[in-house]
Nucleic acid binder design. Structure first.
Lengths: 329, 329
DNA sequence: CTGAAAGCGCTTACAG
DNA sequence: CTGAAAGCGCTTACAG
């Protein structure tokens, strides 16, 4: 492998000069620069980042911790992260927890030993151990999707968007709105959205029945099951619509409804969350909340870069959203 | 930051001993080991990978070059890659070319300067410059999706699967089979699949009309346009079915067909390729080829690991597939 | 079983 | 404008 020493020798300068030339700091004569560039061109020399990192304590690598890469949301977010990181000469070191919470903590440590310049975590929970690991991290950590007190968080406007969608449904004339939610271990999705649902109904003096409110586990099948449960447990007092906290579970719910030969939205309307590709092409197309994941990823990456540059404002940033009005409501 | 020197001092040994203890090579007395482990525990010491890499020339990082991360195929493949890499203590350094071919070459160099132990490239073309860059790489490179002569390639069984699907359509009684393909710059998809389509028809002495064979650009909209073109250009001699080389374009084709108030598969059948989530939930559900992307990713990663371990067999590996028979044919 | 020494490929004051 | 020297945090023969 060619090293800086080879270049120095071939160009007849010291390696200090080569280094200065490469990093454009300090003086290098036009003459020396020209010789150095020629030699580099000929040899195809590329400085070793390992050596550079050891000296400078910077790797130009950002660790990203994902609950599951093969998910539309995750891949969109990563795409947004990558856009701004790449534009700033950073690379992504990718880790996937396969939804195991302990791995989040493990990876925060692992990534540090790999000397990443910062970490982006797609948050799935607010466990005390996680918060502690983030707090103890030696590099900036930015969390997307959950509000974590000890660091910068970029959160989706869960409450606002949910409330907006519920009000849209009310305006459309629906008065008996059901809800399929998610476990409370994920506070943003499991708690905030449910709370917004209930508060919005209360604000408009609209009541709901407990049987209309169910909790799924994110899987398409669980949407099916929970929809079934709602319908079976409320035979005489069925909802005329349901708000589902993820597109996938909404797809499951729709499956059940179709199987029962009911019409959407005539017999029961379905509103969802996520704006997945599927939500657009399924029959009927889903009215859903678009959280603009790619943009959110980009925002998160920018926050991290700011933190790395010393702008250590520990704060909460709320990202935008929009309602996609289609045919299921 | 705590370094190996701090541990050595606190444990009253030399840093050689700490190193041996950490890497489990050479002798370390029980007594010394115990003291060292205690100190490490207390301090939360993690060895610097940068320093380690500089010495050992190994980073434990594999570079992955993707045409586009926010794509179902890519994220599935990465998931498979990650599974075997993670099981072997490797991490992924992710790059995304945004479909720009020159970036593939750029990233091959960049990743090497980052001292990755190997590179996985999701192939989109067979350009001479790319092949040269791969050939000149100082680390093992494994390509998935295109057969590249100078290195190990894992390829999808494009010809076999296409042929199988065409024969399935013939068995179903379709005799006028159209084709929506992709540009030939992507040989695996653009050339091989089209060739298999034509050869299979020829083998069964079934003819096709040139207007039935169109080339899209992977986008859903292009599937719509090409289907439209087929129908408009062959008014009197319309195909009774069409094979599409990607699910996305098939979705576009279906949109057009529905708009024309034609029934699928009664008026025209649609067979696709890719087994996307969408293909399962769209109406009608798509009969499609499943290339098992996640498995293919895992296989590719395993090949790379083998190559890194010196089993440098330059070869072509053909991955498996299965037909998903659903309702569109 | 253990430690001193050399060296991996860079950068960065510092002296000239 | 340039080079010698030190040092980043590790590992690995080697000598004891």
């Amino acid at each position: 492998m060619t090293t800086i020493n080879d270049i120095a020798r071939l160009a007849n300068v010291s390696r200090s000069t080569v280094s200065r030339c490469l990093n454009d700091n300090g003086y290098v004569s036009e003459d020396a620069r020209k010789r150095i560039m020629e030699v580099i061109e000929e040899t195809g020399y590329m400085p070793s980042q390992s050596a550079k990192s050891l000296r400078t304590k910077k790797t130009g690598v950002i660790g990203v911790i994902l609950p599951k890469i093969s998910t539309e949301t995750a891949s969109r977010v990563v795409s947004g992260i990558n856009d701004v990181l790449q534009a700033n000469q950073y690379q992504i070191l990718l880790t996937d927890t396969s939804l195991q919470k302990t791995k989040e903590i493990e990876f925060i440590r692992l990534l540090q030993s790999r000397n990443v310049d910062g970490i982006i975590l797609l948050g799935t929970n607010k466990d005390q151990e996680l918060i502690q690991a983030i707090d103890q991290a030696q590099v900036p950590v930015v969390v997307l999707g959950q509000e974590i007190p000890v660091t910068t968080s970029v959160v989706y406007p869960d409450a606002q968007a949910t409330s907006h969608m519920i009000e849209f449904m009310l305006e459309k004339g629906y008065k008996k709105i059901g809800f399929i939610g998610a476990p409370e271990t994920d506070p943003a999705v499991g708690i905030t959205r449910k709370k917004a649902y209930k508060e919005t109904l209360a604000k408009h003096a609209i009541s709901y029945r407990d049987e209309w409110v169910q909790t799924g586990d994110f899987a398409i099948e669980s949407g099916y099951e929970k929809m079934k449960q709602i319908m079976e447990e409320s035979k005489d007092q069925r909802p005329d619509s349901v708000f589902v906290v993820t597109d996938n579970m909404a797809v499951g719910a729709i499956q059940y409804i179709k199987e029962q030969n009911m019409q959407i939205p005539k017999d029961i309307a379905v509103a969802a969350t996520g704006a997945s590709t599927l939500s657009q092409y399924i029959e009927p197309s889903l009215t859903t909340i678009d959280f603009l994941n790619e943009e959110a990823g980009a925002t998160t990456a920018q926050c991290l870069l700011d933190a790395i540059d010393g702008k250590k404002a520990r704060k909460k940033m709320e990202h935008t959203y929009r309602l996609l009005i289609r045919n299921s409501v």
